[in-house]
Computed example of a mutant assay.
Amino acid sequence: MIKKYFAALSATALIGVAPYAMAASSTDLTVTGIITPKACAPSLSDGGMVDVGKVQATDLLPTQYTRVGSHPMQLTVACDASTLFALNGIDNKAGTSSSNQYFGLGLTSNNEKIGYFTPSIQSALADGQPVHSIRSIDNGASWTRFYQILKDNLTSTSAVGTLIPISVKDLTMELTIYTFIARADSLTLADDVAIDG
């Protein structure tokens, strides 16, 4: 009888301790996310490829940048429904541009910055209507009229004569991609150098 009583008491003690042991070794699981009602897909004509061809080292200006290309390209953004959006220019060759605002063209074998390229906005249509291109350098807090897509800047569109971004379903921008090679006296050009922007 006493053995049964101790066995029952021991079981009760274990059950009483078990919840405290589990609570002391718990952890939180957090699930977050955003349900996006509208999606937008950007695309570039020619697969986003610009080929400046072969550039002769002797054609480069010794103490100034040399423009080696101006290529037309079309940027389109198609959304499921009209929405506010902005383009954010990200340089896939970060740290290689010879100009802080523009996109890099890679490095020579001696780690010299080859040059830069910049997309210039010639015109823009939002849902078939002419619009202005605008940019923000403070993450959308303020906007100015601007004609280029720069890295780490937001680019959007506004109604003609305003600086307030508008909702757009289908955007078309006619661009010109200008490519510049750094001054020749800053580059080692004994061998072929691949332009890689």
Rank of each mutant, 00 (worst) to 15 (best):
P19V: 08
G104Y: 10
I121A: 10
T96C: 04
A141D: 03
T155M: 10
T66P: 04
S142E: 02
G161K: 04
T36K: 14
G89S: 14
A7K: 10
G104K: 07
G140Y: 06
T32E: 09
V68G: 06
S158Y: 00
Y102A: 11
T179F: 02
T32M: 02
G16T: 03
I114Q: 08
Y147D: 14
Q148L: 10
A86T: 12
A24Y: 08
S82G: 15
P19E: 04
T30S: 02
K54E: 14
P42L: 11
T108S: 14
F85R: 10
R135H: 09
S109M: 12
A184P: 06
G89V: 11
Y65A: 12
L44C: 06
T96W: 05
I114P: 01
R183G: 10
T176V: 15
V131Q: 04
A13G: 13
L84G: 00
W143Y: 12
D138W: 02
V55C: 08
P119D: 11
D191P: 02
A94C: 00
T108W: 04
R67V: 08
S25N: 13
V31E: 04
A7W: 09
A159Y: 03
P42G: 12
A13W: 13
L171N: 00
A8W: 05
A18C: 05
P62N: 12
T179P: 01
L125S: 12
G47T: 08
G197T: 08
W143T: 05
N100V: 07
S156E: 04
G106F: 08
G48A: 07
S109E: 15
M22C: 01
I134T: 04
S25F: 14
Q101D: 15
S136C: 08
N88V: 09
Y147M: 01
S123D: 13
Q122F: 01
G69I: 10
A184R: 15
